[in-house]
Design a binder for these strands. Structure first.
Lengths: 244, 244
DNA sequence: CTGCGTTTATTGGTTAACAAGTTGACTACA
DNA sequence: TGTAGTCAACTTGTTAACCAATAAACGCAG
């Protein structure tokens, strides 16, 4: 039951074909009519899909000649949750440092509200984002704010990162609240060094939690495989009658 | 003589109408058939334009209901050259800190080459970019590298920033080389603190140069206006004969 | 072998028609 | 009078068939 419009399916299909290397960069896609036949849709639908790909800069349409695959523009640097957390620690540390000298009373008030919301278990996710966002905006530096937004967007860029973050952020809520409070206190005192240190501690704990959990996961996986092998090869399963 | 495909003109037209406030966010666009008549094109062409807008996240299509205008997503945070330089100082400082502990001999070699190139006055611009890029990559942290790329892209995002950077970077080439050398030395010694400090000094000098020049520019502008006023109102111009 | 005209393949765009979903008004019933 | 169900009008979704414009491939003549 795919409710999306037809052309999105075609976009996905063609994009996957490109990804799979069926159409390397610079080569020509099959003509619209062939694609239409292949995907069992009409030519206008194919045209819509091609336009979507064109807007996304995946292909280039040359009138009368054909549709050509463009080289993928940003090779999308691979990032895992650990890298992201480390980067956030360092960059948001500087953001806190900068913000401490300029933050307004109103912004401090807003920060306190997000902490209170998290204590009430309300909109925990949103409150977390808002907390960090307010501090980034408080720097008064658009480039800093943009860097922050960029990093935050990375949080939901791959399934793996989403997974790692969710399983760690969900637990230890009171820890997060305590750390946010410490950051807030440092900002209230307009103490740049303290603010940076508190932010570093926040991410340091998060990173450690991630590493712990990653280790636990790897261990569980190991055990699962072992027991799988055991049940597959053990004589207990094959010849139970002889082993009592 | 518009060679672009027809639908782009429609995209521009609709986008301008949205920008102009004809269709505020959340409101519905006129039906496809009306738009087709208005722009004197066929309905498929209108559909193509709407799909382009949909991919660009400007509108949302609800089957059977209509096309709705989305709130403009990123209001493109305004950034000036000073903010950018400050952000680069802080973030690239951390990048240098991180890179110092992991940089390879090969990367150090490549850095030395960029410094040599700048000394020879060859590809100065490219060598500068490459210098900073190599260090960012040496962190081994994709999120850091991406943040760096994002900041570097900001350098050429507005005419104002391009201007400010060009007029400062062009001069004082030997200063830049000396600072790059200092950073390189710290990295060669694998000294994170020194690397960060050297990077900070690099941008500190750049920022001061920018401030100086901004001041000089403002002063020159002031003088220009004064002399303009003088020539406009001074009696010397109007009645020269009486004032010898 | 080269240059030029022709042919063919491909995209550009239009028209008309029907299918399917949404919305709101209208009617019948409680 | 209020509410729920029905239905008609409106809107997008998709298709088919058609001709125009362009670009590349082809073949022919010099």
């Amino acid at each position: 039951m795919d409710e999306r419009r037809l052309y999105w399916q075609i976009v996905d299909g063609i994009e996957q074909s490109i990804e799979a290397g069926d159409y390397p960069a610079g080569t020509r896609l099959p003509p619209e009519r062939e694609l239409a036949e292949h995907y069992q849709v009409s030519r206008p639908t194919i045209r819509e899909a091609i336009i979507a790909l064109e807007v996304r800069q995946r292909v280039e349409v040359k009138t009368g000649s054909g549709v050509y695959v463009l080289p993928s523009p940003t090779p999308t640097i691979a990032v895992n949750a650990f890298e992201l957390t480390q980067a956030r620690a360092l960059i948001e540390g500087e953001i806190a440092f900068l913000a401490a000298g300029r933050i307004s009373d109103k912004e401090l008030q807003q920060l306190a509200e997000t902490v209170a919301a998290m204590q009430d278990q309300q909109y925990v996710e949103a409150a977390d984002e808002r907390f960090h966002q307010i501090i980034a905006a408080a720097t008064g530096n658009g480039a800093m704010l943009q860097s922050f937004n960029n990093l935050w967007a990375l949080r939901s860029s791959t399934a793996e990162i989403i997974d790692d973050y969710q399983s760690v952020c969900g637990s230890d809520n009171h820890q997060t609240i305590a750390e946010h409070s410490a950051i807030l206190t440092a900002l209230q005192q307009r103490d740049p060094e303290q603010a940076r240190a508190a932010m570093h501690r926040h991410f340091h704990r998060l990173l450690n939690a991630m590493l712990d959990q990653s280790e636990a996961k790897a261990l569980a996986e190991l055990q699962r495989r072992s027991s799988e092998k055991r049940s597959q090869y053990s004589l207990e399963t094959l010849l139970p009658e002889h082993l009592d």
